[in-house]
Write a protein that binds this DNA or RNA. Structure first.
Lengths: 340, 340
DNA sequence: GTGAAAGCGCTAACAC
DNA sequence: GTGTTAGCGCTTTCAC
């Protein structure tokens, strides 16, 4: 924006060669320079309020110290904590995070992926992966430093950090079964997302193990995670499953909110007639009436852990394509009650 | 991340000098090159999947094509739409947005401001301005290309885009007065923020003009915008103002949510005993019970307009420190009713 | 321990 | 119309 001091300025003021100034300023190479010179250079740098030009440095070192974070949608309260968690690790590590939104659009994701690579980011954290994802596939093919968060792709060739969906669903179903429910419905998330398929799979498994009703009509798939789709799927569920479920596990909190709407329209009471469990523990679901029982996913921790894995790759060049599952916790509120 | 084609590669493949290739690739200078050459260069570039190295370009042009967006907190549902609105203008303009959060911390804001400048961003959109703000002051002093959004600083030396607080408050108060309320309380936002002071000022003014009760005990200041602080201030309001207000205008929706909590604890019904109006129309306030009547602020438009002003400065070098006020709209829901 | 010099990839002023 | 050259600010190899 305005004329800044350059290394040359600092060198001149300190009466040394720019090369020497560079060495003195860089902690890694500082030991190569005599103590007195280091002091003079540091002093000159301070006096001139010198900040190295990252462009010039990047051009030389081939590293931008920037990491891209790709999320579907910042307005979805799920993602800001992930971003913040990642940021809290990246910033102290000297990296700048570049956040971009895909709007849940595969084409847009592709564009952003390309744009970020063109900008020479050193690595990428992707929260928008679909199970079949072109950008993710390319990242794996090219061995780019990429970590997936929250959602995985099917190839599983990239490291990923997610919440433990299997355990989360089990806690939820067990809670409902303990309350006496057997006929439990599931509003399954999009089949193209790992969370959707994973939670649905865990749901079937649990129902089987815990003695729930295995009627296939109890599972309805949602095309997207949204309130409207939740309401639509809820309608389908309650119109199809006979007798109607006494409890429903929603694939995420947004679907649960749609379910709430539907039940209210139908004149069905929560939890009197139907118990409801959500997933994620978004902000404000404790303010719904009744407050939503849901599975809390540690999104900030997920983001932080992903950043740590990425930095390990970037800084120490250690890589492994393992998936880290972080523990989740059922938060019981007012939307679940014993079956009447 | 991996070896990319350089301009030199493209030039070689097209059988021309790098300088010529550069001209052919740049739309601005393309007319200087013969048609056939342009075609060959473009073709070579395509074949090699050439993307210009932004570092090298920036080093030369002294422009990074990056804009910093500073927000207090992405988890506050207010700010993602601002970011998205800005982004929707910046991206087509060829700019990349760098989003950073201050956590409502002045020191952190200062750090981020410096870090972004060190990264050589071309301009800044600041949503975290306090009325007295060191970073904002410096930006003005140095004539940096900066646009304020949502919140302004007192010096008013920088362009700003905000919602029309005066009109918003007037619509809210008029609505309450029309419902028969006279004893209307106000949970004022932080005095260090322009929105807090502005809305409180407008509130006093309106109450005066519309015949409301001017009892100073009806206005309570909040230190921060948060639910807890809203609840605390509500307690103070209802403990101090005698007789108690029959309606309350909250400085923002978060304060309104805190007010809800307090009223529920006190056993006061909304809107039966007390009507409540919020400010901002955050997501999910329509899901509260009762759904919150509030003033809708066009945050996405605010972000977009700010970006437009910034681009005008960056691209065409037009600048003016005027404040743009965008129209707001009262959304009447279930939290307001006629005084009994 | 320090200086000299090359060069990262690009653009732009200047030749021809 | 195209080639040549210099140089943006920095790091790093090579001399000395």
């Amino acid at each position: 924006m305005s004329r800044n001091a350059t290394l040359k300025d600092v060198a001149e003021r300190a009466g040394v060669h720019p090369g020497t100034a560079s060495r003195a300023l860089n902690p890694e190479t500082r030991s190569l320079v005599s103590e007195g010179t280091v002091r003079r250079v540091l002093q000159a740098a301070k006096a001139l309020a010198y900040t190295p030009n990252p462009m010039a440095r990047s051009l030389k070192t081939n590293r931008t110290m920037m990491v891209g974070i790709i999320v579907p949608d910042l307005a979805n309260a799920l993602f800001p904590p992930i971003v913040r968690g990642a940021d809290s690790v990246l910033t102290p590590g000297g990296y700048l995070s570049i956040i971009a939104e895909t709007d849940n659009d595969a084409a847009r994701e592709r564009e952003i992926f390309d744009a970020l690579l063109a900008r020479q980011v050193d690595g990428l954290i992707i929260a928008s992966a679909r199970r079949e994802d072109e950008a993710v596939r390319e990242a794996a093919d090219r061995h780019l430093p990429v970590v997936l968060v929250n959602r995985r792709d099917d190839s599983a060739r990239l490291p990923a950090v997610v919440g433990d969906d299997t355990d989360g669903v089990e806690q939820a179903v067990r809670h409902l079964v303990d309350l006496g429910h057997r006929r439990i419905g599931h509003l399954a998330g999009p089949a193209e997302l790992s969370t959707g398929i994973q939670r649905a799979r865990a749901f079937r498994q649990c129902m089987h193990e815990l003695g729930g009703d295995l009627d296939p009509a109890l599972i309805v798939s949602c095309r997207v995670y949204s309130e409207e789709e939740g309401a639509r799927a809820a309608r389908e569920l309650f119109d199809t499953a006979v007798p109607r479920p006494t409890a429903v596990l929603a694939g995420n909190d947004q679907l649960a909110v749609g379910l709430y709407e539907f039940l209210r329209e139908r004149g069905l009471n929560v939890p009197g007639d139907v118990s409801v469990v959500g997933y994620n523990d978004m902000p404000y679901v404790d303010k719904l009436s009744p407050p939503l029982t849901t599975v809390r996913v540690p999104h900030a921790r997920i983001g932080a852990e992903a950043a740590r894995i990425l930095l390990r790759r970037l800084v120490d060049d250690v890589s492994d394509a393992t998936t880290v599952s972080l523990p989740v916790e059922l938060v019981v509120r007012g939307s679940t009650a014993a079956r009447r």
